[in-house]
Design a protein around this nucleic acid. Sequence first.
DNA 1: AAATATGCCTCGCTAATCTATGTATATCAC
DNA 2: GTGATATACATAGATTAGCGAGGCATATTT
Lengths: 113, 113
Amino acid sequence: MRINKELTKGSTAMLVLSVIAKRDMYGYQIIKVIGMSSESVFEMNEGTLYPILHALEADKCLESYWCEAEGRRRKYYKITDKGRKQLAVKEKEWKEFSTAVGKVLGGANLVGA
Amino acid sequence: MRINKELTKGSTAMLVLSVIAKRDMYGYQIIKVIGMSSESVFEMNEGTLYPILHALEADKCLESYWCEAEGRRRKYYKITDKGRKQLAVKEKEWKEFSTAVGKVLGGANLVGA
DNA sequence: AAATATGCCTCGCTAATCTATGTATATCAC
DNA sequence: GTGATATACATAGATTAGCGAGGCATATTT
């Protein structure tokens, strides 16, 4: 990661769900797509992504299927209805969180509190 | 916390530095001020805050002094030059991070803009 | 007198992510 | 042809931030 990795905690699953929601994708590709669309701010490790995919599938937010193309075996993931709901929750939570950070940094003047 | 606690990882020290940068503050007060200015999105635990304060002081980003007022003994923290530099770095990192999340999600970045 | 709020602190736990490692195939450079 | 790099899957152990649960003490409210 180009930035403090701790910042990413809690948001990674949301990002993964988000890109898969746009179209079915396989693991290696997810890393590349998130890396590119974030302009290399996120350079996710495989050791980070695969466990997340497995957990999201176990939680029925994703479904997987194997495809063979270009002489390569790829495991594609597709988002489920539950996954879309989960994504909506996480996006809302993210907005609430980032807005709150902005408020604290922006300094609501609470002298006397 | 009203939101997923994992999201807060990596940003808490920045928030703490940020409020102390505005004026000297003691621990218990920091929790209240951050709670209020975030409209209760952040409800920091003492078990979270105190170790952060001690670490920031050990790292010379903060200095502390005891005060007695209203019959209460309070440990105030004051930001150092190093602390201000650290805060600037963390704020920049935060903007980069939240902007990147916005790009991946595909929407406009609502944060810090 | 008891409950609540203020104010400091520490210890062990959980969980997200990273680093390192392993396997296998395809492609490119030399 | 051989080695390096990219693609593609996976797991295991280490790290670390924040939490929950305690502990201690005093002031205020009920």
